[in-house]
């Protein structure tokens, strides 16, 4: 077990434990902050896999954008209005059944798939390669995503606009 294994188990442990706490903790703000650690753990796993760019995007988009928005929403509603918002669990038995089926399927796939076992070559720079691929092979998807985001932006601006009455 070398140092990379130890780091992997550290990050995996952080991700799984905090991910479990996100869904089990009663206090919704605490859950949001546990999500912070989950997302960081995942970013760490990406770094270990040599995908440094993806890791940074993970932090930038999820921690810097989505998590902060979640926190904003939770805080604005939780403390200013005097209603205690708790996250509770219901429909436990159906959830267990379906998650069990999903989990079983994933484990089955994991065990039966013939994984390619190549020697690990981590490219020194991933940014340039990624940029080239996105702007050549996946240009259509890239442009479509751009249009989708633009639509979302216009929609948000329209909703937020004051009515001119």
């Amino acid at each position: 077990m070398n140092i990379y294994d130890i780091i992997f188990y550290l990050f995996a442990g952080i991700t799984i434990i905090s991910g479990f706490l996100v869904v089990s903790v009663k206090n919704i703000v605490h859950a949001a902050f546990y999500l912070l650690f989950t997302l960081f753990g995942i970013a760490g796993l990406y770094v270990l896999l040599g995908a440094d760019f993806i890791a940074i995007v993970q932090i930038m988009v999820y921690v810097g954008g989505i998590l902060i928005l979640i926190l904003f929403g939770v805080m604005l509603t939780n403390k200013i209005v005097d209603v205690e918002i708790k996250s509770e669990s219901f429909q436990v038995i159906p959830a267990i059944i379906f998650i069990g089926i999903l989990m079983g399927g994933l484990v089955f796939l994991m065990v039966t798939t013939n994984w390619e076992n190549n020697e690990l070559i981590i490219p020194l720079t991933t940014t340039k390669i990624l940029g080239n691929i996105i702007l050549t092979d996946y240009i259509l998807i890239f442009e479509l995503l751009g249009i989708l985001l633009l639509i979302a932006l216009i929609g948000a601006a329209t909703i937020a606009r004051k009515d001119k009455v």
């Binding site: 902050f33 912070l36 940074i56 995007v57 932090i59 930038m60 921690v63 810097g64 954008g65 998590l67 902060i68 926190l71």
Partner: peptide, 10 residues
Amino acid sequence: IIAISSLVVA
């Protein structure tokens, strides 16, 4: 550097 500064916001 740009990404990690979001930790400060949190």
